[in-house]
């Protein structure tokens, strides 16, 4: 914010759309050690609080006829539970808390990031890469633990003609290792792009003539971002389920 005011003061249009993603130490100082509480840690903690508020406090009454908060908590539970059950099957249900953790964190971080002046933790590749790598490692390790070498059957398409199989195996192998990359960049890229675009429109608002258009555009983008916030969380979660299914039932 300060930098934009600064830019307007100088009379020219100065855009700093990426400034909102800068990580700063919460309590002053310049160095960011691995343990320093930063704005990123603050908004992660707020996501935790939001999850506690929704799922723990919301369901604290254990009402048979649910309150609004409990309804939302049950809706989220049912939504992810059904997703895991439908995609991974009955034996995938034991990984439901894991999938639910990912979904709740991403969806809460995305929506908290939409608050003005907030920081969006899921717009950082460091965060989404850790999430995607966690899924990738879980799936790979689980696949070998549960199925042994049969897990490699994932890359050996037995329904294809024999001559094609080595080629397909290479393609499958590449696609398997590209998964965490696409998985993480899809989420961070979508969230970051939307926030940056909103900031660019906000920069244009410094020109009086353009500012109404700019405000309208920000409103429209914001609406789109609300959709994106949920859809990206949904996409991340459903892909997690699909990958988990590969670990549980590797045969094609």
């Amino acid at each position: 914010m300060a930098s934009e005011a600064h830019g307007a003061e100088e009379g020219g249009l100065v855009f700093h759309p990426m400034d909102q993603f800068i990580i700063k130490p919460l309590f002053g100082g310049d160095t960011i050690a691995w343990y320093t509480p930063t704005n990123a840690s603050l908004w992660m903690a707020l996501a935790v609080l939001a999850i506690i508020g929704l799922l723990v406090l919301g369901s604290s009454k254990r009402a048979i006829v649910p309150t609004r908060m409990q309804s939302i908590a049950e809706l989220a539970y049912g939504f992810i539970y059904k997703m895991v059950e439908d995609i991974c099957g009955k034996d995938g249900v034991k990984y439901f808390p894991y999938v639910m953790t990912l979904f709740m964190f991403i969806v809460c971080a995305n929506f908290l990031g939409l608050l003005p002046l907030s920081f969006t933790t899921t717009s950082h590749f460091a965060v989404t890469t850790v999430l995607a790598l966690a899924v990738f490692l879980t799936v790979t390790i689980l696949g070998f633990v549960l199925n042994g070498t049969k897990f490699l059957g994932l890359f050996w398409v037995s329904s294809a003609p024999l001559a094609l199989r080595p080629v397909l195996a290479i393609i499958e192998l590449i696609s398997y290792f590209v998964r965490p990359v696409s998985h993480s960049i899809r989420l961070a890229g979508n969230v970051m792009a939307g926030h940056a675009v909103i900031k660019v429109f906000a920069g244009f608002a410094a020109i009086t003539v353009i500012s109404p258009v700019s405000v309208l555009a920000i409103t429209a983008m914001y609406g789109l971002e609300v959709l994106v916030a949920f859809i990206q969380a949904y996409v991340f979660t459903i892909l997690t389920c699909v990958y988990l299914k590969d670990a549980l039932h590797p045969s094609h």
Binding site: M18, D19, F21, I22, I23, I32, A33, W34, Y35, T36, P37, T38, A40, S41, M44, T121, S123, H124, F125, A126, V127, V130, L131, A188, M192
Partner: peptide
């Protein structure tokens, strides 16, 4: 800022 690798250990730890 996403490519500022100096902040990665911090983010990963808190995440």
């Amino acid at each position: 800022p996403q490519l500022d690798f100096a902040t990665y250990p911090n983010q990963i730890f808190w995440l």
